[in-house]
Amino acid sequence: MQNKKIYSRLFVVPAFVLYTILFILPVLGGLYYSFTNWSAMKPTITFIGLDNYKEIFFSSGSYLKSIYHTLSFTLYTVVFKLGIGLVLALLLNEGLKTKKVLRTVFFLPYMLSPLIIGIIFISILGPDGPLNMVLRFIGLDHLTHSWLTEKNVVLGSTMGVEIWRMVGWNMVIILAGLQTISKSYYEAASLDGAGRWKQFTQITIPFLMPTLMIAMILNMIHGLRVFEIIYALTNGGPGDLTEVINTQVYKEFSMGRYGMSNALSMVAFIFTLMIAYLIKLVSSREEAAS
């Protein structure tokens, strides 16, 4: 039997040390400051316990609204990213002639900085921008909007851009999952006379489940941490229509209210952790059951 002792933890030390000093330590610092009234406007820092957190959840301010926006942003983007990603992956898994080029194309947006994507889409989504032009050209005038300023549209627009950016990434992960499913299952199934739909629901989906779960967790994390794309597109506006947790964190930070800013980002952290943990729990239980 192989001796596990050879795998010495010394190998973990460099990563562990680097990560602890330059990441965990500052994060703990942030956690500590979230219990203070630290502000660039004041010469002293006082410990104020849970006051910042109380303000987030119990004041009538826009904090709750931004939490709500973040959650709905996450929900919708996760569903569409996974859905469209799945469709693309299935299409590309079918032996299309140009699948390599297509794969490259769909993954391309992920390579760009969200800031740059924001700049591009500000011009595309303007009232006289290319999107509305295309809509008018094909006779769908009634669908034109001022995408980044209208009340019931703007949050959806930011979601759309985020989905645009991330479908390729989802497609790649799901494609990988599809390729791990052995062809023999399908062959056996078609010998048994199972139709394509039945094969999809009884072979593809169950075998793909672990992949989808992981993709879901990662998408969830991306969604809850959303910042740059909204910052670049609308900066949380107009008004507070697209304000999410991290744009608020940034706003508090820019006002020099570091204590509050830290408390808000801790809230986002705890939310994400809880949801990620929940998904992991559910998925591992399912795995155990099957």
Binding site: K151, G236, G237, P238, G239, D240, L241
Partner: peptide, 9 residues
């Protein structure tokens, strides 16, 4: 932002 909110109702 508050004034924008005013315009938007």
């Amino acid at each position: 932002k508050l004034v924008q909110d005013l315009y938007l109702g």
